[in-house]
């Protein structure tokens, strides 16, 4: 444990280490993406094809040493601005401790289906997100470096290619750390 971790370790110990209180991190992920262009994922998918398009963003967290993450809950929403084509779209979030790791299948934290997409109306109805992340990715949230990949998984129907963009309207994570930390 280095000096950095010691500081947070002590912090979290004070918060929850010797009692039953929890440390709760409310992370506004959207604030890290807004203004960078990475809150928008443009897509162009040929007809009869399924394709992922995504953007990756690095997020600094205070880190929580050897803490145990109980749950990670996400609340947010995206809007799909589908300009052409028909098909289905899923909004997915991958998280990992490094950018390459977000491309692993095991890094999938949550996957939300959107209503069937068509060229109209534009924009489509907002897609809400209110779900727990997969427990498999919990340990990532004890790191001080978090990489998030927002994915628009687009399956274009036969006919025209699907073209448009997914815009992240908001995304907040509630990370709950519990149990004895040390």
């Amino acid at each position: 444990m280095n000096a950095k971790c010691f500081g947070v370790a002590l912090l979290v110990a004070l918060a929850v280490g010797c009692g039953e209180g929890r440390a709760i991190f409310n992370v506004d992920v959207h604030s890290f993406l807004f203004g960078t262009g990475r809150d928008t994922v443009p897509y162009l998918v040929p007809a009869s094809t399924t394709l992922d398009t995504s953007s990756v963003q690095h997020i600094n967290l205070p880190g929580a040493g050897s803490s145990i993450v109980d749950t990670v809950h996400a609340i947010g929403g995206v809007t799909f601005l589908n300009a052409s084509g028909l098909g289905t779209i899923r909004f997915q979030i991958y998280v990992a401790a490094d950018s390459l790791g977000t491309y692993n299948a095991s890094a999938l934290a949550v996957s939300v289906p959107a209503p069937p997409a068509g060229p109209a109306p534009v924009p489509g109805p907002p897609v809400g997100l209110d779900a727990d992340f997969s427990n498999a990715v919990n340990s990532v949230f004890t790191q001080s470096d978090l990489w998030v990949r927002l994915v628009a998984q687009v399956s274009a129907a036969a006919g025209l290619p699907m073209q448009g963009k997914m815009v992240l309207d908001s995304l907040r994570l509630r990370i709950v750390i519990r149990d004895k930390i040390f």
């Binding site: 209180g21 709760i24 991190f25 409310n26």
Partner: peptide, 16 residues
């Protein structure tokens, strides 16, 4: 002596 057991909340944003 029991240590405080309340939740501690951290709010984190890009500039928050």
């Amino acid at each position: 002596a029991p240590t405080p057991t309340n939740d501690v909340t951290f709010g984190i944003g890009k500039n928050f």
